[in-house]
Design a protein around this nucleic acid. Sequence first.
DNA 1: ACGAGCACCTGTGTGC
DNA 2: TGCACACAGGTGCTCG
Length: 273
Amino acid sequence: MPEMPEVETIRRTLDDKVTGRKILRVGMLLPRLVKWPSPGEFQALVTDTVITWLARRGKYLLFYLDSGIVMVVHLRMTGRLFVQTEWTDDRFARIVFELDDAKRLVYADSRTLGTLYAMPEAELWRIAGLHTLGPEPLSPEFTPGYFREKLRGRKGKIKALLLDQKVIGGLGNIYVDESLALAGIHPERAADSLREEEAAKLYGAINTVIEQGIQYGGTSFRDYRDGEGGRGSNQHHLSVYGRKSQPCKICGTPIAKGEVAGRGTHYCPNCQK
DNA sequence: ACGAGCACCTGTGTGC
DNA sequence: TGCACACAGGTGCTCG
């Protein structure tokens, strides 16, 4: 579900609610979501520690603890992370952290595909997807030159490349479709077929789309909610995603939906070449 | 390098 | 109303 703008919004809305808080107890309602170490060890590592810093890399959230341990959460498709003020039960609560201010940090997840980890900072390499994560949009490492280099010699489809977290960290299906739409590039184009100016335009579009996503607090179609349980509003500002058969905002042509790189893909057949 | 297929899971919307 | 089926914002694996 959540891509970089959603995870960043969660981080921002959660930050002041969890930073400085002590975790008193961890309720393991669905232990198998913990991938490292064992669920029991995870529980022991996290209990009785103070959250000192909440960080994000790509789609990963990192809770730095005063013990030197980092708890890492990846929400995959339907994970949600929020602080509960009242003690109401969430139907999909899976891991519950009781905090020292009588509130609860809840990890909820309907499809249960999300993953949690806990380990010393020096061992974060154990999380392969985090270790190999490429530079993020809007970061100093994500330069036009870097992007151009990554396109070179890549015969695969541009959409597949943009979804590859090793190339760019944080893009997902929504923002890839939106980036390609904004740049006027067809999702099935071979990555290395982009002309210089097309690559430059796509580079800019990626940053623009991600920035806008964060500005509007993420895209809430169904499951996504921020750290306070609120909805984002970026779904009202999309060009193509979720707009099948609706008129393109530029030319009026109905938005098409097909499958590219194994994912549902929205695009304007007229504007994107 | 690349793509296809599948696996992990469950909920929801759609068409009959 | 009930049922079968498609589809979902992600990632990681195998196989050719």
